[in-house]
Design a protein around this nucleic acid. Structure first.
Lengths: 336, 336
DNA sequence: TTGTAAGCGTTATCAC
DNA sequence: GTGATAACGCTTACAA
């Protein structure tokens, strides 16, 4: 390994001079700098991250908190997409991104301990078990944090505009003549789910439509099977058959459609269905799915921008700040 | 920040003694150790990763090389799923995982430079532009590396058993009476694509079916549109209409199905179609897709195991070693 | 402008 | 079993 001492020896100067040349310091002559840089390159010098961090207390690294305990993982394209956009943005600024881990070697660590251990600059909370007892410790530590799609108390959140999306979906259904619009909510431990449910109630109220609690069911999860089960529950409890269903996720919507088909209903002839997410294959299902499209790239990028701003103290971790990213209604065949 | 000196002062011993207590050294009495550990805990001591690394030259961290230039990204559930399984495995062993970056601060670095800078223990190459000039430098550096699904020369590769998958798919089609089986290959710059194509030719040859080059087309990419375009090319160049199509990915298969439908063909009545991947929503398309299922979890876990073995010198980066992960044929509606 | 030297928090090598 | 002390590679006052 080539160190600044090796360079200094070869050039015939002090190590501090090398350091200055390497760090764009102004306390050095252009000539010396050039000379040193040339030698450094020639010798294949690469700085040592640990030594630099130790000396500067600056880590240029960002942790991503991602709990694989949940059934929504990295393979869910929403989180994968968000992470990718986030990563691209912060790396362009020179940060590295590391997954927050619960251990170092064989020693178990809390999230906060790990962040301290790594001297991390900030954290993106991607998915997390809200009941994880280590979470509060982290969110209250003062470390710059941003979260996406979660509804963590006191953490700046970047999230799709669930209210806008819900409104667009419901207004479209009403415009098309739907009278009885049911809602299959996502699991209400998810913040996004609660927003979509609240939005549903608001929109109906504003349209002077009384809210029929029997037209609302909560899916246990965001996936296909939960959607199918929730639909069955909905149909059995509803007094009249709904003519439209607003589902909190595409997977739920697809499950509901299959459930409807099994019961002999046609989509969209008998019932219109709208999903949420716009996952890739909803274009290819039969019928293709009308859905509210979330902008993963914007969410990831905004999360990155906001986190960097907090790190640079250009913004504070003001608990109240929540950035809402616009969504888009994609109209396809599952609504008539 | 609490350091070992703070602990030493409080306990009334030397910092080196604290270090010994913290590192399960045998050169310390049980009593002292207990005492020190208690104080450390009480003071909320967390070790400093940089200092430790600097002193030990051991990083306990693994880099993931993931090029977002490609159109196959983290939001592709195959790579997301593989990464998740990989991460779970290595973290359980105490490694942290970091994305390999091309810069540090504002300074651009090659992959190899970055790995040296971070003193990384090993690298998982997830997706990479094969033409990236920095790649060779890395793969030839001697740093432990493993790759997934790629066909990098001289790098141990974990990959689905494309030959087995191809054989199962084609034999199933033949069993069902298909006589003219076409192949929409994936882009041949992808190693997996070349294996699937080679497998296709082998199986047909073994079944004494002459290979008709006009029944083979290469999709420009793995996605839906490439599949649709490739299908159109196939139909226009084929002398007789194929009665079955083996596609190199699910997205290609779905594109092909839509293309067929637009041309007035029915799937599977007129043409059977088989995909590759078993991405989630192929269960819900219409028709649902018969496909070869790849085992992301096994691939990710095997990659992790192998990389750790190389790091621990229990295995070598023997260029010849390629672990093939078994696949499974999932029979659905797109084949008759 | 350049050099000296003192940290940064650990681990590791020796004496004691 | 314990404690000085020298690394590890770098940055940064401060001195020259």
């Amino acid at each position: 390994m080539v160190t600044i001492y090796d360079i200094a020896k070869k050039v015939g100067c002090a190590s501090s001079t090398v350091s200055k040349a390497l760090n764009n310091s102004k306390e050095i002559s252009a000539k010396r700098k050039e000379e040193i840089l040339a030698v450094a390159k020639e010798m294949g010098y690469v700085p040592n991250s640990s030594a630099r961090r130790l000396a500067t207390k600056n880590s240029w690294s960002i942790g991503v908190l991602f709990s694989e305990d949940l059934n929504i993982g990295l393979e869910h394209h929403f989180f994968g997409g968000v992470l990718q956009a986030f990563k691209t943005y912060v790396e362009a600024l020179g940060y590295e991104v590391t997954f927050v881990s619960k251990k170092v070697g064989s020693q178990p660590l809390t999230y906060l301990e790990w962040c301290k251990y790594k001297n991390i600059d900030g954290v993106l909370i991607l998915t997390v078990d809200v009941n994880d007892e280590n979470l509060n410790e982290l969110t209250q530590s003062g470390i710059p944090i941003v979260t996406v799609d979660n509804g963590l108390i006191n953490v700046p959140t970047i999230i799709s505009d669930n209210y806008q999306g819900t409104r667009m979906a419901l207004e479209y259904l009403m415009l098309k003549g739907a009278k009885k619009i049911a809602h299959i909510a996502g699991p209400l431990r998810s913040y996004a789910s609660t927003e979509r449910l609240k939005g549903y109630k608001n929109v109906l109220s504003n349209a002077d439509i009384p809210i029929d609690e029997k037209l609302i069911v909560e899916a246990h999860n965001f996936d296909f099977n939960s959607g199918k089960k929730a639909l069955e529950e909905l149909i059995s409890q509803a007094e009249d058959m709904p003519d439209a269903i607003y589902a909190a996720s595409d997977d739920i919507a697809l499950g509901a459609i299959v459930g409807l088909k099994e019961m002999g209903y046609k989509v969209p002839e008998d019932v219109s269905v709208i999903g949420f997410d716009n996952i890739e294959l909803t274009r290819y299902t039969s019928p293709s799915l009308t859905t509210v499209s979330q902008n993963k790239v914007t969410i990831g990028t905004e999360a990155a921008k906001h986190l960097i701003a907090i790190i640079n103290k250009e913004s504070t971790t003001d608990p109240g700040i929540i950035k809402r990213v616009p969504v888009e209604l994609i109209i396809r065949e599952s609504t008539k």
